[in-house]
């Protein structure tokens, strides 16, 4: 059809469709891409042009501490989330359809609840006079309330809770594609339940594991709400550090440098992920 048409006619035919794309494209360029580019620009130009902001990655101990704290918490979160998510995805992939529906509901429901509401709920559960401490003291198990919040433990609980559904979905997608006869075949050949799992099932889910880890890690890196509330300002992760630089200390150079580094790290991770697995298949092809 269009193959034989001259270029001008092709352009004429596609012009109306480009007009449909235009409003969203203009909004996105003017009010998203442009301000984002400006963040990168500012990081190189304020307070003076050059790489002085980026030098702080090497020279400033405070900046390094924030990055190390962030990476530590993100790695812990990713590992715990993957273990929990794997168990759920495994049970999900072998459950009968009726049970599966309930499990899906439980996994997807938290996704519909505001991050802020969930962080607030964790505050009520974990704080000094929270539900857990009250219950433990009431039962006479402890005398002093445990410190469950406003530290890295609290942040990890809140983040793991937020991330689990995002890990389950790609893991489940990779398990669903496994031929259900493989594990029984291995068992039939004399493998124990654990051996069959370790040498047959687990290697086949490797793409799902990689995709889930990278996704969870990326989401964790730039996470703001949960660490800010459950960390109580005592454990600074990068997103909250950026907010402090801009809104409280008005140090645009440092703030935008940290934001740019965060963005670059995420883009690099996504790029690496796309080289290893087909991103479109990560969530089971939509």
């Amino acid at each position: 059809m269009a193959v034989a048409a001259p270029p001008s006619r092709v352009l004429g035919a596609s012009l109306p469709w480009w007009l449909l794309i235009a409003p969203a494209l203009i909004l996105m360029l003017a009010f998203y891409a442009f301000p984002l580019a400006e963040v990168l620009w500012i990081s190189f130009t304020e307070p003076e042009p050059g790489l002085s902001n980026y030098e702080r990655l090497i020279t400033s101990e405070a900046v390094q501490r924030v990055w190390i704290t962030t990476l530590r918490i993100c790695i812990i979160t990713t590992v715990i989330t993957l273990l929990a998510g794997y168990v759920v995805a495994y049970a999900l992939s072998s459950a009968p359809p009726r049970v599966q529906r309930w499990m899906f509901l439980f996994i997807l429901l938290p996704l519909w609840i505001s991050v802020l509401v969930r962080a607030f709920a964790w505050v009520t559960i974990l704080r000094r006079q929270g539900l857990i401490n009250e219950a433990l003291i009431g039962a006479g198990l402890i005398d002093e309330p445990l410190r469950l919040i406003w530290n890295e433990f609290g942040i990890a609980v809140g983040m793991v809770h937020y991330m689990i559904p995002y890990a389950v979905l790609p893991l489940y997608a990779s398990m669903r594609d496994i031929d259900p006869r493989l594990v029984p075949a291995a068992r039939g050949l004399g493998a124990s339940r654990f051996e069959a799992f370790r040498s047959v099932f687990l290697p086949l889910t490797r793409p799902g594991i990689i995709a889930a880890s990278v996704l969870v890690f990326i989401f964790s890196l730039g996470f703001y709400v949960t660490p800010a509330i459950l960390g109580g300002g005592r454990t600074l992760m990068i997103a909250e550090y950026i907010k402090l630089q801009i809104l409280d200390l008005i140090r645009w150079g440092l703030g935008t440098m940290m934001a740019s580094t965060l963005l670059i790290a995420i883009v690099l991770l996504l790029w690496a992920l796309s080289r290893i697995v087909d991103i479109r298949r990560v969530f089971g092809s939509g």
Partner: peptide, 23 residues
Amino acid sequence: VRVLMLLPIIVPSIVYALGIYRL
């Protein structure tokens, strides 16, 4: 264009927040 449209769910809000605040 499609990839551009997906930017807001890839880029952390905190990064975009700085840019839009400035604008």
